[in-house]
Design a protein around this nucleic acid. Structure first.
Lengths: 215, 215
DNA sequence: GTCACAATCGGGTTGATCCCTGAGCAGGCC
DNA sequence: GGCCTGCTCAGGGATCAACCCGATTGTGAC
C-alpha cells in the first residue's frame, strides 16, 4: 500500500484531450494502469485492476463522476479517489467528500503539483486545493465528524417535493395549486428548507438543486 | 497564409493541464507560437504574434473566451479562431459563430482529428463536430442568411453580464454592489433582458440561462 | 446637428417572497 | 395518556421583484 516508489493510477475522464494532458504530465512519476471515458467501463476496470489512486473527472455526462466515486468506495475501499474538477464551489466539494473522495483539485493545477497530490493521496493523506481546505474543515467541524448525513437527507419528503417545484421556477401560488395546499403552507416548507440548507433565498435554492441534478 | 506545411497556432486555455494535453497531441504537426491562460494576455500576445489559428477554450472565467474571440476578430481578422469547448449546446455554438469563430469542436475530439481541424481552419475551411454542423446550417438557413438574431445576441454586453449574475442567484442589491452600479440600474437591465427574451420573471431567466449553460 | 441607443439613475406602486410567532391535527413511540 | 415529529394553516411586518413613469450622459451613425 505504501509504495515509496510509483503509485498505480487509473484515469477517468470523458475527454481524450484531458486524459492525454494528464498522462503527459504525470506518466514519468506514476504507474498508469488504465483509462476509461465512461462510467460502466471505469467501474469495471478499476475493480479489476485495483489501482492505488483513481484520478476522476467529476464533470462527466449524467453526473457519472459521482456514480464512479460511489461504486469505487463501495466495491474497493482500498482504492483512493482523487477528484479533478473545474468547479471550486464549496457545495460540490463537500458532496464529493461525503461520497468518499480522498482529495479534490481543480484542473488549473500544475503538473508537478498534480504528481505530488497523487503521491500524497496514495500514501493516505487528504489533498485539497488551498482555497478549498477551509470549506472542507468547516463542513466536518459543523457535522460532528460521525454520522455525516447528506444535506438532502435531512429534508422531509414533503419539503423535498416543494423544493423540486420551487427549483423549477414555480411561484408559491402555483406550487400551492399544484400540491393542493395553502400558500402559507408552501411558505412554511420553503422556510424550513432554506433554514436547513443554510440558504437565504429561493434563487440560491434553484442553483443548489440544479447543481445536484434534482430537477 | 496557405501554408501546406505547419500552420502557426496560439493556444488559450485557463487550465494548464488541458494546454499540456493539446500541446502533446498537436505539437508534432503545427507550429506553436505561444500560450495564454487569461484574457488580457491572450489578446495582447495574439495581436503581437499573429498566428494562423487560435485554439480557444471558451469556458474561461467571466465569460472571457467570448471576449478574446471578439477582440481577435476585430483586431486581426486574418487570424482564424477555432473554438474548443465542453458544451455542445446549439445556442452556444451559434453565438460563437456569430462572434466570428471559424470552427467549433468539443474537447472529446481525438488528437489526429484536432490536428486536421486546425489545418483545415488554417486553410480557410469552417470545421464543426459532425453533430453540430446540422445546427449551424439550420440557424443560417432559417434566417435567410442575413439578420440572424440569436436571442442571446440581441442583448447588450452589460445586459449579458447582469444576466449571468442574476442566473447565479444574486439579489439585485448584490449585483449592484458587485458591478459598482445602482440597484435601479440593475432593475433596468433585468427588465430589458426579460422583455427581449419574452420572459416574465427572474426564475424563468435562471432556467433559461441554465439550459444554455451560461452559468 | 439630429437621432438612436446604451448605460446610468430616481420616485412610486403592486404583488411576491421571507421571516417570525403562533396554532391545530394525525401518527408513532414509550 | 404524554411526547415528538410531520404537515397543515394564519397574521403581520420587512424586504424584494417587477413594472410604471421619468431623467441625464456619452457614443456613434447619418
Amino acid at each position: 500500500m505504501t509504495e515509496a516508489t510509483a503509485p498505480s493510477v487509473f484515469l477517468v475522464d470523458d475527454h481524450a484531450l484531458i486524459r492525454s494532458g494528464i498522462r503527459a504530465e504525470i506518466a514519468s512519476a506514476v504507474h498508469l494502469v488504465g483509462e476509461a471515458d465512461e462510467v460502466d467501463a471505469a467501474i469495471e476496470l478499476i475493480c479489476e485492476r485495483r489501482p492505488d489512486v483513481v484520478l476522476l473527472d467529476v464533470h462527466m455526462p449524467n453526473g457519472g463522476g459521482l456514480a464512479v466515486l460511489e461504486a469505487v468506495t463501495r466495491a474497493c475501499p482500498a482504492t483512493r479517489v482523487l477528484v479533478l474538477s473545474v468547479s471550486d464551489a464549496a457545495e460540490d466539494v463537500i458532496a464529493l467528500i461525503r461520497a468518499g473522495a480522498r482529495g479534490y483539485v481543480t484542473k488549473n493545477i500544475s503538473g508537478p503539483d498534480l504528481i505530488e497530490a497523487v503521491q500524497r493521496v496514495a500514501e493516505g493523506d487528504a489533498v485539497f486545493s488551498p482555497r478549498l481546505a477551509g470549506f472542507v474543515l468547516d463542513a466536518y467541524a459543523s457535522s460532528g465528524g460521525g454520522e455525516v448525513d447528506d444535506e438532502l437527507h435531512q429534508l422531509t419528503p414533503r419539503e423535498r417535493q416543494v423544493l423540486r417545484h420551487i427549483a423549477r421556477g414555480y411561484a408559491y401560488k402555483e406550487v400551492a395549486r399544484e400540491l393542493g395546499i395553502s400558500i402559507k403552507t408552501v411558505e412554511s416548507h420553503v422556510s424550513a428548507v432554506l433554514r436547513k440548507l443554510q440558504l437565504s433565498n429561493r434563487h440560491q435554492l434553484t442553483n443548489w438543486a440544479n447543481e445536484r441534478r434534482l430537477v
